[in-house]
Nucleic acid binder design. Structure first.
Lengths: 248, 248
DNA sequence: TATAGTTGTCTATATCAATAGACGAATTTC
DNA sequence: GAAATTCGTCTATTGATATAGACAACTATA
């Protein structure tokens, strides 16, 4: 659709094979390379991108490793089906319900939890004093066995004492908050950015180095506007897109 | 704030010096390295990231080239001030008003325009038949002389004939739509993703290769819900963050 | 079965990326 | 003025990246 010719840059800190791999991923996302069909042969790709066949092979090898492509000697290299999940963000953003219909199974896995003093930023967001105790949860969102998010969440430790146990049992923030008398809550604000995945993201989200993560920083509030949760979530850009609904 | 130890990955298609450069940028964004102060000396940075001093120097050289840092022999390397713009997205998303208060000057520059048949995707979004003529505008958002967005926008050619001239004159979508009797409009939907900048983005947004762009795909509608505009916008992640307001 | 088309493997070469060490040049501090 | 600190430049070495060419292995098709 947009289809602006975007060529390859050299000597820029990003190796050619990774740039080619990214272009192939883009091509799959944009529909240039259809799923379950063969990619153009290596020689054609090399010509198309103006690089050597071996460089294309390096890119393909990386994508085979990532599970995006499957190479078959003598036949061709095939695009495996891999749809991006579309994660809705709005006033009623919730992990599980947001992915309904796109996956058969999803839940939040609690990786670890701890209690720590609130940093200035978290204290401001939660309307508590700096240094007050907050509970920090490290979670991974999983859908059909694939990691789709990696989040760090903070709650006021006084008000939500023991929420880590509720999370571990239920695998759901919404269900855990119900135990503290909160039957409904709203997304107050979301700030969005993107960066390269760091080592923690790579491990938790099963990504290859150089991958991009979408980062959201959000505050959830009760219906009265009282802040209850501060969270930073990372989504693998190659597997997830964020859908913002106006009327939500 | 989150402060998870994120170390450096080797042999991954992204060179160490670019990874270090990205980490320094992150450090500036997160406040670890304050603006208008000196960075830790090269040897300290090399130790901190576990690489050779020369590798750190390569990273610094790239950031000096980008205008983020300034090195002074004998004194140190200094962080120049460069705050991320915070671009609000909601039902009333508009380029100019959204940045009010953060910049003294901003406008949309029209790079080029053309008329073309609507692709399936654009036809669906604008509720017209596939192949109908649409006007395509290529624009660059500028704030205080810096490029902050690069967008491709489509309008129904029948209804908005000549809108490219209005855009060129006014430098504003909102003002241009007024000439066609549209005094107000709403953001109907936004889909958000991220990827590495392509060659066109690099040139238009004055980025270094390897940079990340945030991508939004949006549909604007009249108050009656009639779609009038389809747009794909790219924002440099290192200079812009997107702020999503729930009540907007 | 023969041929064309495609991926897989091998060798060789040139350039880039990263490390290592030494020393020069400019600035600040004592 | 001397010393310490810090950035700038140079040489050398190693491993990763990229190109080039040749040929083997496998598949599909005429």
């Amino acid at each position: 659709m947009v289809g602006l010719a975007s060529s390859i840059e050299r000597r820029n800190g990003v190796s050619l094979w990774r740039q080619i791999a990214d272009k192939i991923l883009q091509g799959i996302a944009s529909g240039d390379f259809a799923e379950n069909t063969a990619l153009p042969p290596e020689i054609a790709l090399a010509e198309r991108y103006g690089v050597n066949r071996h460089t294309v092979r390096s890119a393909i090898a990386a994508l085979v490793q990532e599970g995006v492509l499957k190479a078959e000697q003598g036949r061709g290299t095939f695009v495996l089906s891999r749809k991006r999940l579309s994660y809705p963000i709005g006033a009623r953003t919730r992990f599980s319900t947001g992915l309904q219909g796109q996956t058969s199974e999803r839940h939040l896995a609690l990786l670890s939890s701890s209690t720590e003093p609130a940093s200035r930023r978290i204290a401001e967001a939660l309307h508590i004093a700096k240094g007050e105790a907050v509970i920090r949860l490290e979670t991974r969102g999983e859908a059909d066995g694939h990691a789709v998010s990696r989040a760090t969440t903070w709650f006021d430790a006084k008000r939500f004492a023991g929420i880590e146990h509720a999370m571990a049992e239920t695998g759901s923030i919404t269900a855990s908050l119900k135990r503290f008398g909160i039957n409904d809550y709203l997304r107050h604000s979301t700030v969005l950015s993107a960066r390269h995945a760091d080592a923690d993201d790579l491990a938790a989200l099963d990504l290859q180095p150089g991958a991009i993560v979408l980062v959201t920083i959000a505050v959830n509030v009760t219906l009265d506007g009282e802040p209850i949760q501060f969270a930073e979530s990372r989504f693998p850009a190659e597997r997830v897109e964020l859908r913002l609904s106006a009327g939500d």
